[in-house]
Nucleic acid binder design. Structure first.
Length: 463
RNA sequence: GGGUCAGUAGCUGAGUCGGUUCAGCGCCUGCCUGUUAAGCAGGAGCACGCGGGUUCGAAUCCCGCCUGGCCCUCCA
């Protein structure tokens, strides 16, 4: 059994003096002189490190003196008020155990590295201030997601990662197969014989748990999913990854308006959690990453999100006089430049855009009475763009079948989905929130590859 | 997939009207100091992404390729 340790976040909260404090962690820096060696130890439990002082009374002081950044140590000593500036307490070591030395070529220095470089050492970057903070925040937010829904009586549903529905229209999918790609079995017609594949049919990684989630909502009431999602799009941008996490609540007896209300409460709850439970980390981001962060987060919590229809959004964009690369007109997809202008310039905070033309949205979205729009909603936020996409679902069987056929899909493939509209159908709605994009918004980090531990993007699947 | 910018020591950058590469940090050695991106002195380390071409001579000009960043498309 290993000897006990106290996490540094807890040690820093102790009122000195306190004898026999034991910590374990990794050295952020070592400053040595003739009599004293200053060891800055971080164990990931907090932004702050603990300074330990070793002197010549230690038997292994010569070894300690030569310790390099990145080495793992266990230190035992007395926690005392620090006589020098820079820290309120420090650990006067009576014992320094060298657990694991770091080779001198440890790549993390005591100075700023570029995010690009740190991505190439994603296995080590959690040992930096920035990424340590990012991943502590990520963990807290994940917990907050569950708290929010569990407190409201939502049921957490584990929708499948592997799916055979290949036509949800949410993007390119990764194929899941056990066939040998160099010599796949062929049928008489010469085509690949998917019947011989593992599932006896084509299978893919899910692009959304929504359709499965819906089936649970219309039976269990309010449900949510929270899991990985996959898109095989060749997207090379700062806000797209091939594997990301998404939260998808789905509510029975719920319309688009209720949907927006929940989404707003959800986002605000996550931001409140950040402000209350991640204070040190958020302050760090506010100082070093995005100076406007704290003000923006506080403002978000206090003010209602804007809501406007797509029709109104188009009208306001047209009236803005702004020159856009892509023209704005009813029926056009809102481009990133339009969305950014809306939320950053025109509104200045998060905005729900609702009721899009049916032609540019998915088949399952509820047809509005005007005959030309559907009950869809996107939540646009400054810096990040689209944070949430959702809709009220088409609960009317005939209308849904017509929409499937209009889209050119085969209704047979959706028989299980259509069953929910045959057996006790009810109005229901839901949305998907991109977890990484939420973290970007909450931390001010500008690249999605820097808020997920090991990002998967086109041509990148290291670690 | 399209566009655009970039690729110089381990890292961050400087250097280009073409003429034997620099600085800081890191690393090694020593000194000094309750230090804190410690300080001081010394040292090792890069022929400049790869391949062609122009030239007496190219990191610096031209062509191709590779890699990365960003933007657009896709969406979360």
């Amino acid at each position: 059994m290993q000897s006990p340790r106290t996490r540094i976040v807890e040690v820093l909260a102790i009122a000195p003096p306190r004898a026999d404090v034991r910590i374990k962690g990794w050295l952020r820096t070592v400053r040595d002189s003739k009599q004293l060696v200053f060891l800055e130890v971080n164990d990931g439990s907090s932004m702050a490190s603990l300074q330990a002082i070793a002197d010549e009374t230690l038997a292994n002081i010569d070894e300690v003196r030569k310790l390099t950044t990145g080495s793992a140590v266990a230190i035992r000593g007395e926690l005392v008020a620090s006589p020098a500036k820079g820290q309120s307490v420090e650990l006067r070591a009576t014992e320094v155990e060298i657990i694991g030395k770091a080779d001198p070529d440890f790549p993390l220095q005591k100075k700023r590295h570029s995010y690009e470089f740190l991505r190439t050492i994603a296995h080590l970057r959690n040992r930096t201030n920035t990424y340590g903070a990012v991943f502590r925040v990520r963990s807290k937010l994940a917990h907050a997601v569950h708290c929010f829904y569990q407190d409201r009586g939502f049921v957490y549903v584990h929708t499948p990662i592997i799916t055979a529905s290949d036509a949800e229209g949410a993007g390119e999918m990764f194929r899941v197969s056990t066939l040998d790609p160099s010599k796949p079995p062929r049928n008489d017609a010469g085509a690949i014989d998917w019947d011989a594949d593992f599932f006896g049919r084509q299978a893919f990684l899910t692009v959304s748990g929504q359709l499965n989630g819906e089936t649970f909502a219309v039976g269990m009431g309010d449900i949510y999913t929270f899991g990985p999602t996959f898109r095989a799009e060749n997207s090379n941008t700062s806000r797209h990854v091939a594997e990301f996490w998404m939260i998808e609540p789905e509510m029975a007896f719920c319309d688009l308006d209720d949907n927006c209300t929940l989404a707003e409460a959800f986002v605000k709850h996550l931001v409140k959690t950040l402000l209350e439970d991640c204070t040190a980390d958020i302050e760090f981001f506010n100082e070093r990453v995005d100076q406007g962060l704290l003000a923006r987060l506080r403002h978000l919590v206090d003010s209602p999100f804007e809501r406007m229809s797509y029709t109104e959004a188009v009208a306001r964009l047209e009236a803005s006089g702004e020159k856009f690369e892509y023209p704005v007109f009813f029926g056009a997809n809102l481009q990133a430049e339009h969305e950014r202008y809306l939320t950053e310039k025109l509104i200045g905070r998060p905005v729900f855009v609702t009721d899009y033309p049916k032609e540019i949205k998915a088949f399952y979205m509820r047809r509005n009475d005007d005959g030309r729009t559907v009950a869809a909603v996107d939540l646009l936020v400054p810096q990040v763009g689209e944070l949430i996409g959702g809709s009220q679902r088409e609960e009317r069987y005939d209308v849904l079948v017509a929409a499937i056929e209009e889209t050119g899909l085969h209704k047979d493939a959706y028989s299980w989905y259509l069953d929910t509209r045959r057996y006790g159908t009810v109005p229901h709605a839901g949305f998907g929130l991109g977890f990484e994009r939420m973290i970007m918004y909450g931390t001010g980090m500008q690249n999605i590859r820097d808020v997920i531990p090991f990002p998967r993007t086109p041509r990148h699947c290291e670690f």
